Amino acid sequence: MRNIYFQSIEQLKTGQALALRDIVDELIFNHQALIPVITQNADSKEVLMMAWMNKACLEQTLVTGLMTYWSRSRQEVWIKGETSGNYQRLESMRFDCDGDAVLCLVKQTGAACHTGRQHCFYLEASQSRQSVSMLSAAP
């Protein structure tokens, strides 16, 4: 079902502003209280990674400017780069038309992927060959 709030704002004029608190309060988080976040390089527009945020992580990201995610495997908050030094600084946060996904444009320091690669999407599927190819080798 479409988010009625987000449907109601579809006709706003370009540049018209809404209160950030109102938008955040209307976001749709899943049954685990998480929302998917696509993180993209602000300069190259390359998709770096996909992760999850809970509401507290989203709010902390907006306050600190450092990308803060929820680790489903560790069940804890993690600030990207806190241990590796490969920080992501928020440049822009966008919400999709249904209010159930977030797009963040960031300035990336070092590699985005825990494997040491520049981004996490290094496996490419080929429909014609019915195979998957490695786009970049591990560093």
Rank of each mutant, 00 (worst) to 15 (best):
N86V: 05
E91C: 14
L34I: 03
A42G: 08
D22A: 06
L66Y: 09
R74V: 01
I38N: 06
S133W: 15
L135Q: 10
R117H: 10
F121G: 00
L105Q: 07
C113F: 06
G110Q: 04
P139Y: 04
V77F: 06
R89K: 14
T14D: 15
E124T: 06
Q118V: 00
L103P: 00
Q88S: 03
H114P: 12
I79C: 07
G85Y: 03
Q130R: 13
W78A: 02
L27G: 03
S133N: 08
Q11Y: 11
A125N: 15
L103R: 11
A125K: 15
E59A: 08
R94L: 03
K13C: 09
L123R: 15
S92W: 10
E26S: 09
A101T: 00
R74W: 06
I4K: 14
T68F: 02
I9F: 02
D25W: 00
L20V: 10
A19N: 11
C104E: 11
E124G: 13
S126Y: 08
E82R: 10
E91Q: 15
I35K: 07
G116Q: 05
D25E: 15
V77A: 00
R129E: 14
A138C: 10
F95E: 00
S73E: 10
S126C: 13
G85D: 04
Q108I: 13
P139F: 13
A17E: 14
G99L: 04
E46H: 01
M93Q: 06
R72T: 07
R94D: 11
G85I: 08
A101I: 04
G65V: 04
C57H: 06
Q130G: 10
P139Q: 09
Q75R: 04
T14V: 09
A125Q: 15
L105V: 02
D96G: 04
L12T: 12
T83V: 02
E91S: 09
A101E: 07
E91N: 15
T68I: 01
L105N: 10
E26Y: 02
A19M: 06
F6K: 02
Y69S: 07
